[in-house]
Amino acid sequence: MAESNSQLLRVHTLKSVCSSCSVLELCLPIGLTCGEVERLDTLIAQRVKVKKGTVLYRTGDPLRSLYAVRLGFFKTSILSVDGREQVTGFQMQGEMLGLDAISNDHYACNAIALEDSEVCPLPFSLLEKLAHDLPSLQHNLNKLLSQEIVRDHDMLLLLGNMNADERLAAFILNLSQRLNMRGYSSKNFVLRMGRKAIGSYLGLRLETICRSIAHLRQEDLVDMRGRNVTILDLPGLKQKVTGCHRHTEQ
Rank of each mutant, 00 (worst) to 15 (best):
G35F: 03
E36C: 08
V37Q: 12
D41V: 02
T42D: 14
T42G: 00
A45W: 03
R47E: 11
V48Y: 06
K49R: 02
K51S: 03
K51P: 04
K51T: 01
K51R: 12
G53F: 03
T54M: 08
T54Q: 11
T54Y: 03
L56D: 01
L56Q: 07
Y57G: 03
Y57R: 06
G60H: 02
D61H: 07
D61V: 05
P62Q: 04
P62T: 11
L63F: 08
R64L: 09
S65G: 09
S65D: 06
L66I: 14
Y67K: 07
Y67R: 02
A68M: 08
V69C: 02
V69E: 03
L71P: 03
L71E: 15
K75F: 09
I78M: 10
L79S: 07
D82Y: 13
D82L: 14
G83E: 02
Q86F: 14
Q86R: 15
V87F: 12
V87P: 00
T88E: 00
G89I: 00
Q91H: 12
Q91C: 04
Q91V: 11
Q91Y: 15
Q93F: 00
G98N: 05
N104P: 05
N104D: 15
N104E: 13
N104I: 09
D105K: 02
A108D: 05
A108Y: 07
A108E: 10
C109N: 06
N110E: 12
I112N: 13
I112Q: 05
A113N: 09
E115K: 12
D116H: 08
S117A: 15
C120F: 15
L122K: 01
S125A: 10
L126D: 14
E128S: 10
L130D: 08
A131L: 09
H132W: 01
H132Y: 14
H132M: 11
P135N: 05
S136R: 12
L137F: 09
